[in-house]
Nucleic acid binder design. Structure first.
Lengths: 233, 233
DNA sequence: ATAAAACTATGTTATAAAACACAAAAGTAA
DNA sequence: TTACTTTTGTGTTTTATAACATAGTTTTAT
C-alpha cells in the first residue's frame, strides 16, 4: 500500500483548480484535513467494491482507473494525470467503487475527506459547480467512449488511444515521442483489444510510417494519418 | 418539432424529485419559467452539436438518448422514463450536445432554462447535490456500460438489455411482458449489435424458453436464466 | 382501402478479431 | 552470472459477428 508523505506540500499551488473557488476559511480547513500518500509503480490505490471515503488529487505520476471485465480482461476506463481529481464519483452516487485505481509510475496523491468536501460544496456554489463541471465533462467523455470502443475497428481504436495519450501526457523533448511508458497489455486494455492485437497493429503502424517504436517508447511520425485512421474507424 | 402544451400541469407532483430540495421562492420561479412540449412518436427532441439551453424532465412517454456512430449505426446511450431529467450534462460541460434525443412514443417534456437552474443551484446546496448525484450515478452506469458493451457477447448484451428494459419500464398486467414497444433495430442499437443479430438471438431465446414473443411484445419467461446469460457474458 | 415504405425473418458468405501456441527478448531476482 | 519471470513478437486456427441477399410481414401514409 501507499506510504504516507512526511514533507509538507504547498497546497495552494498543487490543488490550484479547486483552490480558486475556495474562501480563506475553507482553505484552512482543507489544509488541516489533507493527507498525502506516495505510491510506487503499479501499486493499487483503491479496488472495486471498496467504500469511497476521500477525494483524491493526483499531484505527481500517472494513474489508471480500470474495471475487471469478463474473463479477467481489464478495461482502462480513464487515465489520470497530475492535478486531476478522482475517486469522488462513487461517494456522490452513494455506492461502492465500481472501478479500481492503480499507479502506472511512482505517484503522489493528496487525500481530502469526502464528508468535508460535501459539507463545503453544499455551502459554496462555485465549488459545487466545480464538481458538476468535472462530472459533466467525464460523462461526455464516457458517452463518446462507448461509441468509439464498440464501433471502431482495432486500428481506429489504437490510433485514438495514441492520440489520447499524446494529448494527455504530452511529448518528450523531440516533440513527438509520447511521454508515457506503457506495456502493450495496458495499451490493449485502454483500447479494448487483446495484447497480441495491440502488438500487431503497432507493428503495422510502424510499417506504414505512422509511428516508430523504441521498446515501449512510441514516437508519432505522421499525426495527420493517425488522426485519419482514428476517424474512419 | 414538438407542440407546445396548452393545459396547465401541476408541477409540484410532476417534478417531485427536484421539488423537494427547493424553497418556496424557488418554486415560484421555476413555475414561471417552466414550459411544456409534446412530442409525437419518433420525434427528435434535440440533435448532436446543438447548443443546450434547457433542463428537460420527461413527464410522460419514453425517450432515447443516442449517438450516431461509424457508418450511420446508432448507439442508444441511455433511455429516459417519466420523471427523469436529461439534457443538462452538455450545458454544465459548456459544450454542444454530443448525443441526440428522440421520443419512442408520444411524450411530454417539461423545459426549464438551464441559466435559471445554474443560478439557483449555486445558491442552493441541496439542489447542487441533486445534480451531482444524478451525474455521479449516470457516470457509474456509463463506466459499467463500457465494459458490458465491449466485453460481453451478443447473447449476454441482449439479455442484459432485456433485463434493463424490464427494470426501467416495468411489466404489463401479466407480470412478465415488458412494457415497451421497441423495434428490433432499436433493441439492436441499445445492445450494440446488428438488427439481424438481435432478431436471431431473440429467436434463440424463444427456442430456449427464456422469453416468448408476440410481435414487438417481449415476455420474460425465465428471468433467472436470462440473468445467467447476461452475467456469463 | 390501397400502395408504399419500413420492419422482420432467415439463409449464406465474408471477415475481423480472439484464442492458441510457441519462440525470442528483456527485465528481475538470487 | 545464472536462472526465472514477464513481456514482446509472430504464425496458425477458430469463432463470433457483420455483411449481404431476399422474401414475407406489418405499419404508415394518402
Amino acid at each position: 500500500m501507499g506510504r504516507k508523505a512526511k514533507e509538507i506540500i504547498d497546497l495552494s499551488s498543487t490543488l490550484e483548480d479547486i483552490w480558486r473557488v475556495l474562501s480563506e476559511e475553507e482553505r484552512v480547513l482543507i489544509k488541516k484535513n489533507a493527507r498525502f500518500v506516495h505510491y510506487k509503480k503499479n501499486e493499487t490505490i483503491y479496488i472495486e467494491d471498496e467504500q469511497p471515503k476521500d477525494l483524491m488529487c493526483l499531484l505527481k505520476g500517472k494513474v489508471k482507473i480500470y474495471k475487471s471485465g469478463v474473463g479477467g480482461r481489464n478495461q482502462i476506463i480513464r487515465m489520470i494525470r497530475p492535478i486531476q481529481y478522482f475517486g469522488y464519483r462513487a461517494f456522490f452516487a452513494r455506492e461502492p467503487y465500481v472501478t479500481a485505481a492503480s499507479s502506472f509510475e511512482a505517484s503522489t496523491v493528496c487525500l481530502i475527506s469526502m464528508d468535508l468536501i460535501e459539507e463545503m460544496l453544499r455551502k459554496n456554489g462555485n465549488m459545487a459547480m466545480f464538481f458538476i463541471q468535472m462530472l459533466s465533462f467525464d460523462l461526455g467523455v464516457a458517452d463518446n467512449r462507448i461509441v468509439n470502443l464498440t464501433q471502431k475497428h482495432v486500428r481506429g481504436r489504437l490510433a485514438e488511444s495514441l492520440i489520447f495519450l499524446k494529448e494527455s501526457y504530452g511529448v518528450e523533448e523531440d516533440g513527438a515521442t509520447i511521454d508515457i511508458y506503457l506495456s502493450r497489455e495496458d495499451l490493449a486494455n485502454l483500447s479494448n483489444m487483446t495484447t497480441a492485437n495491440a502488438i500487431r497493429t503497432l507493428a503495422n503502424f510502424v510499417n506504414e510510417r505512422v509511428i516508430s517504436l523504441d521498446g515501449r517508447k512510441i514516437k508519432i511520425i505522421n499525426e495527420d494519418k493517425l488522426l485519419k485512421i482514428s476517424n474512419i474507424g
